[in-house]
Design a protein around this nucleic acid. Sequence first.
DNA 1: CTGAAAGCGCTTACAG
DNA 2: CTGAAAGCGCTTACAG
Lengths: 355, 355
Amino acid sequence: MSNPPLSRARIGDVARLAEVSTATVSRALSNPDMVKPGTRARIREAISTLGYVPDGAARALALGRARTVGAIVPTLDNAIFARAVQGLQTTLSNSGYQLLISAHEYNLSAETEVVRALLERSVDAILLVGQDHAAQTYELIRASQVALVIMWSHPSAELAAAGETPPSIGFDNRLIGQLAADHLLSLGHTRFGAVSGFTRHNDRARERIEGFRETLAQHGCTLPDACVIEQPFGFEGGRAGLQHLLKLRPSPTAIFCGNDVLALGCLFEAQALSIDVPGALSIVGCDNLPIASQIMPGLTTILLPTYELGERAARAVLHWLADGEPPPHERLPIELIVRGTTARPCEAALQPTLA
Amino acid sequence: MSNPPLSRARIGDVARLAEVSTATVSRALSNPDMVKPGTRARIREAISTLGYVPDGAARALALGRARTVGAIVPTLDNAIFARAVQGLQTTLSNSGYQLLISAHEYNLSAETEVVRALLERSVDAILLVGQDHAAQTYELIRASQVALVIMWSHPSAELAAAGETPPSIGFDNRLIGQLAADHLLSLGHTRFGAVSGFTRHNDRARERIEGFRETLAQHGCTLPDACVIEQPFGFEGGRAGLQHLLKLRPSPTAIFCGNDVLALGCLFEAQALSIDVPGALSIVGCDNLPIASQIMPGLTTILLPTYELGERAARAVLHWLADGEPPPHERLPIELIVRGTTARPCEAALQPTLA
DNA sequence: CTGAAAGCGCTTACAG
DNA sequence: CTGAAAGCGCTTACAG
């Protein structure tokens, strides 16, 4: 407390000051009731005098686990991933684990390097988003024998049955497309379009579109490839997507967007073009971002409990690390949230003046 | 590659397979040109055969640094912090550092525990948001002798001159309030209000309001305490803030919000109350979230380069760790972004029918 | 209840 | 250019 110490206090410094061995200090810290209360008090005293904080690297080396979990998301610059990470972090933190976080910006080979970097920090487990990853990524994780949990996706029934997939805590992405299609069909639409993120290396995006397309097909409607436009995530992507779809003849009256950011982009572009939503055009998004309920006329969307996804994924990891047993797959419930009027749009109204 | 190894490969396994010592393997990894190309090739071969990934804990212990940096933000569930973290992460990652991330949800004593948890992971540096932290937090970091960099805030001139503050990479939060005041004054407003996050334990929020108030005072206008309403961050906070301000008599015609989320909440509430913005009410936010430019009629705001903040903070940390020299304070430029009409509002129009 | 000692998996002077 | 050996700061059987 007087003059600053020359170097950070070590367990040996504490032991010396408390007049015990380092073994006893170590026990006082990790197994308090193995040491006599009086000794414990002296040690506590010494620790606070010296401002001792144990060295995690040494601890991790001795214990063989670091109490650290690594998560890799496409980007943090998307409320949806940020929220899930928040759920992860809070849950892990409450159990004494820390979260090492990285983003790969939708670049699968960057992801492999990030995984390597995390493994080199001796994480106890790794969390990835989706099933689509470089073979090398899976190989690296397998060879390192760390726990791997997949978030967001749900493995196909066959794969899951064959036990071929890592434990997955996710959504039924195909069902998302199906809910959107059912809703839009129920409004009486017959001409559909979709704005999606890039589907390459993104099983979530792919399955959402597939689910949408299949459900339409079951009702005798088609979704031609030309009616599915892939755009970068972001408002501008959504705006460009709508512009593209409106150039089609006949143009769609109902649009399913892979997420709310794209859907909001569509909505803003429609407003700019004075297209009445939902009067003349129906838009369905996905995620239920807070903003979706705030804007006028409000955005119909599919609620994905992403914070809870993070929580559940964290719990799955914690159980795995505690039991040694891989956790079961989990599929989180999703829900269609209808906002705005649900009246069948008047198709005639849809004659925008394009810039 | 054949049957899965019983346990993760160690440096000794690589050495044995490549018929060299562990010292040589270590050198091949960290100082390649200290080892003969032929040996290097055998080692490379062995590494890939075994899928060897060095153990970071052991490495950190031997080297005395973990190549890991810890950051603590109030929450990730706010685009502004998520973006900065993204900037941090990307920059650190490019220099071979990993980011350990935690949130404290605006709870200062939770923050102290989080700091302890990070220190116990032997991070090389810690990044905090703002100057307001528990004394214990500062003490813990000082005793651990890890680098500390403050983000978002800029220390007051006196403190900085006295060298009392940790290196800070931030904004001039007082100037933010000043820019907002100057803008609103230039529109001819005379009655002002403010919606702020909680100012307790939040120097950014406090300084923004102070800057706003001081600038108004310099122009003969006052901002009574009753005209500053503190609300939790979130759209609902902004909405409640506007409701509160509209109950005042006379009610303000110009509102400064501590950030864009609150400002958007105000704007949505105004829309719900059919108050014309910016015709009857001027709102200025802060951050320039992407959504601010998308909504109609658009939100006047103050652009804070938060991604760059993360980048710069990461660079400051990296330099510090490389040089041993604490980096200088840095103040990032901010900019008023005017959106919507700038006409003086017709005060008579502001007679909302409150629910 | 406590201590002496070995060991966790690396790195790096030191010697050759 | 390479190897034997000590050391980084903890933890934990083992012995008392």
